[in-house]
Every structure is written in C-alpha cells, then in structure tokens.
Design a protein around this nucleic acid. Structure first.
Length: 150
DNA sequence: GCCAACGTTGGC
DNA sequence: GCCAACGTTGGC
C-alpha cells in the first residue's frame, strides 16, 4: 500500500468537507505530473490531506483511495472551469480517483514539517514545489502518521 | 498584495 | 526545438 499527499485550499474543499461527504471525486487536476501520480494510485492507498493557502498551511487529515482510473468528467463540460477542449470521450486526457474520508487530526503546520523533514525526504517541503498530488516515501509515512497521532 | 518558482503556450 | 511571454500556485 502506497502513501500519497494531496493539496487543497480549504476555502475550496476542506477536510471538513470530506468528513461530511465521506466520498469525493478528486476532479479538476490539470497538471500532467499530478495526473500521472493519480493514475498510479491503487485502491486502499493512504492519502495525506494538506490545506494550502491556509493560515497556517499544513496536514490536516487522512483519506484513502476508494476508486481508481476514473475519467475526470469536468474535462468534457464547457461550463466547467476545468473544461479541456482538446479532450474527447474517445481520448480522455485527465484521469483521477475517488477519495474516502478516513480521519481528521490536529493540524501539523508546514513549519513543523520543514523542521523535521529534509526536502529529499518530503517533496512537499522542496522549494518551489507546486505539485498538488505527490508521492510520500514509504520510510516517511510512519513518521508522518506518528506526528498525526495515528 | 507581493513575488519566486515553474508549467504551458505559441511564434518563429 | 527554442524560448519569451504569460498564467498559476502558494508561501509569506
């Protein structure tokens, strides 16, 4: 079972929203590297949930992968801000997963993560990193879970 | 609100 | 294929 991290702006979609919804299609990702990670996810993988553009930003919860290899429907919707005119149902460009809520935990601020993990260990704290979906090293996952009190 | 980082677009 | 211009992300 692999571990991942997804970012979301809490004003857009927060861990509280996921706790309420229980399941959420992770649509709207429009970055090829992030998409490739989404496609590499397997059912049951654990996903750390990160609040970006928050005060302070940090990890706030845990989700799991409920469903994989889902064609992101927003790419075909001209009304959606994620509409991609170059995508067709025959040749979709964007795939995603459905996330399931696992648990919320007390915020682990980005500051703490920077203090405890090197940029080599944790992509998140790498300077200039803007990826919204990224893998978590297997050696790092237990340390993050311990910090989360899980 | 600023701005560094970086991905994407499009002219050539 | 190069690269300047532009748009977005996201911390501060």
């Amino acid at each position: 079972m692999a571990h991942w991290l997804v970012k979301s702006e809490p004003t857009d979609y927060s861990i509280e929203d996921l706790a309420r919804d229980r399941l959420q299609l992770w649509d709207g990702v429009r970055n090829y590297q992030a998409r490739n990670y989404l496609q590499a996810m397997a059912k049951g993988d654990r996903v750390f949930f990160y609040h970006s553009n928050a005060k302070p930003p940090g990890l706030v919860g845990l989700a799991s992968v409920a469903q994989t290899q889902i064609v992101d429907p927003t790419q075909f919707d001209p009304q959606s801000k994620y509409y991609d005119p170059k995508a067709t149902p025959e040749r979709p460009r964007w795939y995603t997963v459905e996330l399931a809520f696992e648990r919320q935990f007390p915020l682990i601020p980005l500051d703490s993560l920077k203090a405890q993990f090197s940029p080599e260990e944790l992509l998140l704290v790498r300077r200039g990193n803007r990826l919204s979906v990224m893998p978590i090293e297997e050696a790092i996952a237990p340390r993050l879970l311990a910090l989360a009190g899980c």
